[in-house]
Amino acid sequence: MTDRPLRFAQADSREDFQTRIAWYYYVGNMTQQEIADLLGTSRNRVNRELSACRENGIIRISITRPVGACVAAEEALKDQFGLDNAIVVPTPRRPEDLRAAIGFGAAGYLEPRIHDGMKIGVGWGRTTRSIVHSLTPRPLRNIQIISVLGGLSHCSRINTFEIVSDFADLFDADRHFFAAPIYASTEEARDVLLAQDAIRETHELAKTVDIAIVTTGDLSDSLIIEYGMTPKEVVELDRAGAVGDVLGQFVDSRGQLVDHPINRRAVALAINDLKAIPSVMLASGGASKIRVMRALLGAGLINVLATDEATAEALLAAETTGR
């Protein structure tokens, strides 16, 4: 092994550079410091690029045996909330790794259940993106990936259009978009949008999916809050009793829509339509999400939950104490 950095590494694209690091680390069994010395970079950068490899799908990890305590939490969640299935993963040490961990667990559940002829409804967000990046590509026949809500004009990597396209690319699937913003300017404008042929067709198709994959946010940690709303609207929602949103629609602690104009402007599948979908997976976790997750579970809107161990314990404790 040469003591000098490899010159050709300097010409690699970012993806090639990441792949080289992943190869040396997982196949070559080199330490991060050895890789850094070989490529003329820092160990911290090697660590960051390995994390990026897991996020963007260059590295796909398969774990074949579940953790016993997580299995126990899964059974408890199914019993307490009447779920068809629950997926609980170990809580990562670093909070920034939580979405990737939940996405990995959700993908492991979904992979054997995705088959020819399916219609899959997909939301948006960072956890959904992690699910997509954890799935193994394979060609399928007559499969459709359908957006269940409109999009935003920016935050492209986690927007509905990119999520649906990336998901569809995995399985050579047809894709259907809500070609509209998540919020219309008025309730009347929303009705006009939903009456347009292309949007109406997607809206009706979204009601017939075999499985819908959704995430949720609270009033402090939500893409809707971050990109789609004004501070004044956030204050109003809090006063109206909102604990968070699903499909861009805000609910109270009972999982009921709060009385706020923004809910009447949402270009999305109505949350009550979720009850008619055979399988609705909520993929979410974190201490700030407990109240809204509890609300959605209690309202019977979700029948499959993908979360982490700490969140599962908090949900079960909240159920026991009645909080």
Score class of each variant (00 low, 15 high):
L219P: 13
I225C: 08
E204D: 04
K207I: 01
E204F: 09
G255M: 12
D245H: 06
G248Q: 04
A240K: 06
E201F: 10
Y227D: 08
D197E: 09
G244Y: 11
A206W: 06
D252A: 02
L194D: 13
P231F: 05
E226N: 05
V251R: 03
A212C: 03
D221Q: 10
I213L: 00
E236C: 01
Q249I: 04
T230Y: 09
G255E: 11
A212I: 01
E226H: 08
T215K: 01
R254N: 03
A206L: 13
I213Y: 00
D197K: 13
P231R: 13
G228H: 01
A242Q: 06
E233A: 15
V243C: 10
D218M: 04
R254H: 09
L219D: 13
Q196D: 15
V235N: 12
L237T: 07
S220P: 05
K232A: 09
S222Q: 05
G241L: 04
V251P: 04
A195Y: 11
I225K: 14
R254I: 07
A206F: 06
Q249D: 01
G241Y: 05
E236R: 15
E201N: 10
R190K: 15
L205P: 11
S253T: 10
V209C: 14
R190C: 03
A240V: 06
E204G: 05
G228R: 11
T202D: 01
K207A: 06
T216D: 03
E204P: 04
A242R: 10
K207H: 03
E204Y: 09
D210Y: 01
S253G: 05
I224S: 02
D238A: 05
L247H: 08
I224K: 04
T216Y: 02
R200I: 13
M229Y: 02
T216F: 10
D218S: 09
H203F: 10
A195E: 14
E226G: 06
D218K: 14
D191Y: 11
L194T: 14
R239N: 05
E236H: 09
G217P: 04
A195P: 13
G255S: 07
D210Q: 07
E236L: 05
K207N: 11
G217M: 03
A189E: 15
L193D: 07
T202A: 04
I211D: 00
A240F: 08
T208W: 02
S222M: 00
A195T: 15
T230P: 13
E201R: 12
F250K: 07
L194W: 11
A240H: 07
E233S: 13
I213F: 00
T215H: 00
E226Y: 08
T230L: 14
F250L: 08
A198D: 15
E233P: 14
V251K: 01
V209P: 04
D218E: 12
L194Q: 15
I225D: 09
T202E: 02
Q196W: 15
V246E: 01
L205F: 12
L219G: 07
E201G: 13
Q249E: 12
T208M: 12
R239S: 12
F250W: 14
G244W: 02
L223V: 06
E201K: 14
I211L: 00
I211Q: 00
G228Q: 09
R254C: 14
